[in-house]
Amino acid sequence: MSGEQTAAIESDIEAAIREDHPALITYITAGDPSLEDTKEYVEALDCGGSDLIELGLPFSEPIAEGPTIQAAINRALDAGTTPARFFELVDELETDAPLLVMTYYNMILQYGSEPDVRPFVERAADAGLSGIIVPDLPAEEADPLRDACDEHGLDLVFIVAPTTAGERLDRIMSQVSGFAYVQARLGTTGARADVSNATHDSLTRLSAYDVPKAVGFGVSEGDHAAEIIEAGADGVIVGSALVDLIAEHGTGDAPAADALESKARELKRGARRGGEQRNGHEQGREEAPEPEQP
C-alpha cells in the first residue's frame, strides 16, 4: 500500500486501516490526568471501536497544539509523566488497535544518553508501538528517524498540510508509511463545529496517490466523520474532542471512560455511514463491486 519498496509486507497500521475500513483513529495525551487513567481510557477507546490509537507523549513546548491539548500536556507533565513511565504504561497495554506515539522531536532525540533517535525507536518497538508521528518533523529532517523506524519495523507517519503541494507533496507521499495524516485546516489542533473546506480540497488533491489517508485537526462529531469519509478519506483522526471529555470529567477513578467509549462509537458509526454513502455514490455511477463492510 505504501510504496513499491515496502509493499510486500503490510504493516500493522495499514492492516488495521484496511480491515475495518473506514478507520477511526483516536488520540489522547498519556498521563492526562494520570498514567493509571490513561490505561483505562485507552481500553475504553479500544472497546469503542478505535482502529488505531495515538498516545501523546507530553513535551513542554507543543507548538502544533491548540489550547485543549496544551492543557492536557500540562496536566500530564504536572502528573510526572516521563518517557520512561510512558513506555512502562505501553508495556502493560493490551489492545486490539495498534498504538502509535505522537510526540515532538526533542523528546525522541533525548531518550538515550546522547542526542540520538535510535534508543527511543528501539524502546518503542520493544513496548509494542506500531508507529510514530512527529508534528515538528517535516520530511526534510526525517532521514535519521525514518532509518531507525525502518530498522525496527515501525511506521513513520507524515503530516500533509493544506499548504503542501507540488514537488514536496510528491516527495512526502512517496515516503509515507502507515497512512498520510491529512491536516484538515491551517493552524493548530482543536475541536471545531464544522468540517473545513480545505479538507475537501486536500482530499481531491491527494486522490491520485494510492496511500491510505486519514484526516485530523478539528474533527469532533460523528457527522464530521461521515462527511470526511464520504469525501474520500480512509480514516478520521479525533483528539481534542476526546481530551475535552477527559478534562470535563476531572480526576477520580477514570471517570471519563464511559464517555470516551460512547464518543468513539459515535465517531465510528459516523465513519461507517460516510463509507456507505460513498459506496452508494459509486454504485450510482457505475456497477460498483460489493462493499467491503459487513
Binding site: I63, A64, Y105, P135, D136, L137, P138, A139, E140, E141, F158, I159, V160, A161, P162, T163, T164, A165, R168, I172, Q183, L186, G187
Partner: peptide
C-alpha cells in the same frame, strides 16, 4: 545551506514548510 555544522535545520510543522521556502 540549512545548517551550521550539526546545528540549525527546519524542525517545524509541515504547514510552515512552504512559507519557509
Amino acid at each position: 545551506e540549512r545548517t551550521f555544522g550539526d546545528y540549525g535545520g527546519q524542525y517545524v510543522p509541515e504547514a510552515l514548510m512552504p512559507a519557509l521556502q
